[in-house]
Design a protein around this nucleic acid. Structure first.
Lengths: 213, 213
DNA sequence: TAGATTGTTAATCGATTAACAATC
DNA sequence: TAGATTGTTAATCGATTAACAATC
């Protein structure tokens, strides 16, 4: 199925959005769609969509369009959503809790094995089938269960050291909510840094721009 | 101070990161930095940094570099971080609470006026100086206090209708955590959509890629 | 002055869009 | 077959990088 070797980050970042919209069409019972229609839905050009899909081989059929089912399965395969990767979460504050309770790791390719915290009040508790363990057991647990990724929802000050140690213990990806800029790409470990701050500042800029018009 | 009219989104999205790093240098008492040094810190090219800064006029001095103080103030001005914009937050679940308790709106250009929810258990409570009001008072409050932006931490199903109504009532920007894709740019209202899902899927893809090597 | 480093123009690179032949 | 729509190549556009004169 995979065709091109080096798919650009620009393309990759559009894939989840395609998948989201196509899944919802699938759920509605739709079976086919043209690049033109999809482009309208997403505010992109049909050309771009065809280029993007063709990075991964032919999903479409000339004169007909794309099979939504095929496309969804293709995207699931490309993104690796059905490979049952595993995750642990570190830091059960409000944000950690929000993710555990409200976020579906399952539908994004991961099983959340358990969470870790240092606060006696939350250790031992469980929510949504996820147990909170003592952070002192973290590395032993990682050694034994080899989770693919770690979700960091700890205070930003401890993030760099924690990240480094997790990678030493074999973690292969980080989803970083700490606000700290983590870069371990040189170690071959992808990191997605979620920067609420950056995001809000960008909004702030845009709001100011509308003001000046 | 502002020079170019149309600064590209690519540039804008780098500004918060510059600001973050420069602020921390400022806090450490550093006074000057060259584009080369900053580029090393951030993993960018010196050329790009000079191009970016020059979108907004000359912050630097030939043969010397950039004054960190000047640069920070310049970025604060460009991003509009010191204009005391106002915000309301709607949906005091775990995520809403996480933002209220742990996120510094102040240092990102906004004052969080208050929050809204429909749950009797949280209405009337306060945290971090932010009171939770009954969502039935929302539009009256917005009419009266004219917050610049609204933070949406409600279930995704109610997001589109809520967004539309908020805009009708004069809200000028949305920070959207609902997972729903909101696009009100045609109404001149900027939206920052935070898609946890997209982010995690992108990570999933990258982790898979490392696997295949 | 000599060395350093910016501001800015030109060159390169990559991503998006347009066009159209292939084909269902 | 005729109409539609893909897959793919070529053209355009925009963003990044390189180069270097200006100047502190």
């Amino acid at each position: 199925m995979e065709k091109k070797q080096n798919v650009s980050r620009a393309v990759i970042q559009r894939l989840p959005r395609y998948y989201r919209h196509l899944s919802s069409l699938r759920a509605k019972g739709e079976t086919r769609i043209s690049s033109r229609k999809l482009a309208e839905m997403l505010g992109l050009t049909a050309s771009q969509i065809r280029q993007d899909f063709n990075c991964f081989g032919g999903f479409g059929q000339q004169g007909y369009g794309y099979s939504i089912e095929k496309l969804c399965e293709g995207l699931e395969d490309i993104l690796g959503l059905k490979r049952a990767h595993t995750a642990v979460l570190i830091g059960v504050g409000n944000l950690g809790r929000a993710l555990i309770k409200n976020f579906s790791f399952e539908s994004n390719g991961f099983k959340l094995l358990c969470a870790f915290d240092s606060d006696r009040m939350v250790i031992g508790s469980g929510m949504n089938g996820v147990t909170v363990r003592d952070v002192s057991e973290l590395y032993a647990y990682v050694d034994q269960h080899k989770p693919d990724i770690a979700v960091l929802t700890v205070p930003h000050a401890i993030a760099p050291a924690l990240a480094r140690k997790l990678v030493e213990h074999g973690v292969r990806g980080l989803w970083n909510f700490t606000g700290e800029d983590l870069h371990l790409e040189n170690l071959g470990v992808p990191v997605e840094n979620v920067h609420f701050s950056d995001n809000l500042m960008t909004l702030c800029y845009q709001v100011n721009q509308t003001e000046e018009k």
